[in-house]
Nucleic acid binder design. Structure first.
Ligand code: MN
Ligand code: MN
Ligand code: ZN
Ligand code: ZN
Lengths: 137, 137
DNA sequence: CTTCCTAATTAGAATAGTTCTAAAACTAGA
DNA sequence: TCTAGTTTTAGAACTATTCTAATTAGGAAG
């Protein structure tokens, strides 16, 4: 996933485009979520916020992640290896590789996976989640 | 997934084979999990147990599901659409189809999905989770 | 600027699903 | 039958998340 270095102004514009009020808290969290973090969880976002911005509540972190997800600016994933919801600034359709050694999640572009399905005709597929688990040598 | 009609004796034998003490509670829960249920959650197993056997505690249901999973007699899955752990008497490698209308989970045999991967050489894949979401017409 | 109104933030309570704890009840062997 | 190790159990604890209700902030109108 290409990491961008958005300015506050660019983030503000993005939020407005999506119909989200660009508050101080939301802009700050977006700096992290859109530019720095890699598939962060809510508590990773909260930890970063505690270290890097004025006092913010956990509720605001959860609210903001919800708002950003609903607006389509980020996506939320649930993976088999953890309870925690993982947030993703990559909003393209894509799959994931979970590195069992490091615990890191890596993006797998959709077109690097060719699927040939032989499902009953009446199964209408709307979306596909794929998680590869393994290690990176 | 082919559903079997195991007798108590067959279940008892299966448990012993796996090194699990065949207690009354475990045998009864296996009747449901191995013969009747379709990808049940812990609370579905508990509900069934309350209706169909002598008093049993929730803790025993959770313990038993853990013991059965550890022994390899059943498998546990975490799916993107729910918090709850889903238990599966199909211990073969296989994938799943989630029917968004009914909420039902259906097994997809491994060999009905042909994958052609173009991942970096250093990504060593140990296992693959695939969940198709859609509807059945 | 003020005023007013709505939306966002907040602390803390509540919830859901699961795991842990420690005591009581079983069970298999000796 | 005795005994040591398992299993079961009720209830507490835990984790991640959502809800509640009060407070604060922001933004258009005047
Ligand atoms: Mn990403
Ligand atoms: Mn939970
Ligand atoms: Zn991703
Ligand atoms: Zn299955």
């Amino acid at each position: 996933m290409k990491r961008k270095n958005y300015s506050s102004e660019e983030i503000e514009k993005k939020l407005i485009e999506k119909g989200v009020q660009p508050t101080l808290q939301r802009i700050a969290l977006c700096q992290y979520i859109l530019c720095v973090a890699d598939h962060p969880t809510a508590d990773e976002v909260f930890d970063w916020a505690q270290k890097n911005m004025a006092k913010i509540s956990q509720a605001t972190v959860y609210n903001t992640l919800g708002v950003l997800t609903d607006s389509g600016l980020i996506r939320a994933f649930k993976f088999p290896h953890t309870e925690k919801i993982v947030y993703d600034c990559n909003i393209e359709d894509h799959f994931h590789f979970f590195d069992e050694k490091s615990g890191r999640i890596l993006d797998i572009e959709a077109d690097s996976v060719k699927l040939n399905l032989d499902l009953p005709k009446k199964y209408k597929v709307n979306s596909i989640d794929i998680v590869f688990k393994g290690e990176i040598k």
